[in-house]
Amino acid sequence: MMLNFLLRRIYASIATFFIVISLVFFIIRLTGDPLADLEDYPGITPEIIDSMRTLFGLNKPLYAQYFDFIVNLFKGQLGYSLLYKKPVAEVILNRLPYTLALLIPSVTLSNYIAYKLGLECGWRRRGAIGLTLLFLSIIFTSIPYFCFAFLFLYLFSVRLGVTPVFGAISPNDNAPFLSLNWFEDYMRHYILPFIVLTLRESLILIPYIRGIVVEVLGEDYITTAYAKGLPTKAIKYRYVARNVLPPIMTVMGLRYASLVDGAVITETIFSYPGTGRLVFEAIVNRDYWLLQGAVIILTLNVIIVNFIIDLIYLVLDPRIRFR
């Protein structure tokens, strides 16, 4: 039964993967030409463009390009980025560690904070704390993220001068990689984007979780629990907190699915390296190969995360297990 379920999920995942990358392959090729920007450069002749097209395989018919793409994919090659003139894998891997190091802790912590605070906010929905939290979260989510991040940058970097304005490591800093000095420098750059991202994300989630808590509080079993004379704390943590988990699990879990492209604005404002901006640039410049590579990683990310969420559901919700 269980095995059957897992196998079905794996088949579905593989199918999804190939459908998505094929769609992206064809859609991006419909939307524009990567070499278009070059064509109006002074001194660029049609001959140069043709020659580039040939070398990047763009003059082949579409099905041949697709065939090459799939064959190379099985060989483990993602091709060359037209924009960076480098293997796509290298371009992405240069930036991926920064993004993952920023986003995995940030998403985890903000999920935790939002869960705890959302529970509190819903539990004391008419109390001062609940209202203040709701108010704050509405205020801060209605400020555009751009301004929000910029306010922090201004306060902490310029006014207080505790963090640097840009980058992930200081230029001109020759501390060896992973040494103590390097780590200190890295953390000084890391802390601000991390805080901003975490704070913002948790504040966005709070009203959502609050809503679910309020809904759960109206259920019959809560009334029964009260009627049984259970202590309030037991009701709060054993009944409410646990029953809130399954619905918010999907939302919280899926936030891990956008790790690769999730921090475009943060990366831009803090000049922090990462894959978010890379994906954005790949789209704007129609760098087919880079985008394909990025989408492959994105899709894998989404599929794996979905798979894990399904597994967690199995643990959290016995109904799925026994059906």
């Binding site: 001194g43 660029i44 001959e47 020659s51 070398l55």
Partner: peptide, 8 residues
């Protein structure tokens, strides 16, 4: 090399 940017 026809693909060099200054080839024209």
């Amino acid at each position: 090399y026809a693909w060099t940017i200054l080839h024209g």
